[in-house]
Amino acid sequence: MSTINNNIINVSQVKRTYKTEVGIIKKKKKEVDALKGLSFSVNKGEIFGLLGPNGAGKTTMIKILTTMLTPSSGEVSVLGLNPVTDAKKLRPHINFILGGERNLYWRLSAYDNLAYFSDLYKIPRSEQHGRIQDLLELVGLQDVAHQRVETFSKGMKQRLQIARGLVNNPEILFLDEPSIGLDPVSARKLREIIRQLNDNGTTILLTTHYMFEADELCDRIAFIDKGELIEVDSPQNIKQKTNNVSVVEFSVIGIEATKIQEFTHHPDIHHVQFEQQEFLTKVKLHTTDPQGAVPIIYENMKGAIIQDLSITKPSLEDVYVQLIGGKVS
């Protein structure tokens, strides 16, 4: 199995502080600790997910790994190189993609965008043409290759970004929220492309806010919050860790949220989420004793209509919510 030598990315005790000045006249120095001693490593050939709430430090970590930012302290190595001092050597072997519609030249065609970035990565002209064709095919844009990017839909732009990130055939590809704002079909297509790349040997490090996506794609996942590592393991193992917990979900009509809160203070019920919809309230709770929890629910809500009650195993999202502790109400 994986040995130390297999680690293609090594992050150890990385800290990063941002110093900002607030106020115009009376300048006050403010420090934000975006990363507070993060350590993890990524194996060669793996899809590694970096998950965490907004402001957790995911983008900061990606910027450090892609030579765009230097850490305040700690050790980083990517492909055996230090992104701080060996940036020049490292850059040809990696690439990165930031989700969203920007980061492309809208006034150029898809083909020209790729040609331009190929030049920036010093891909010899003789190889460029064939490579660009392959990439366009990979992301399904061969038919619109000579159309200006400004005419593309968001999904097409995002796919072109993927192709852009591949012009230098990187050994590691970094993706920061690649599926943001995509419709379900486009998002699935994107996942297929990522998997295909991975099959061909590219190591991938991605961030995402979609748990099912991480669950489906990633070999291993790191949960980070406020710049600290919470958990790192495969999605299966992470879910296993909360194996004795079940998720009870139901919708209820004709009862106030406060009332539900009262009885859910029961010791066996760990975590409660509400979602108030037009007529009904959706409730989700985590419990170690579903058999005990269900009767409590019915007892305490006499007169209310309970629908769609189900007991399931926790999804990655449930684990995430539990670990990060953000109560979504």
Binding site: T67, K88, R91, G100, L120
Partner: peptide, 18 residues
């Protein structure tokens, strides 16, 4: 403005020449 500057800066190309 187009968000490509960071990609350009992070590419291996010689910046002065570029």
């Amino acid at each position: 403005y187009m968000g490509t500057f960071q990609h350009v800066m992070a590419s291996p190309v010689n910046k002065a020449g570029l």
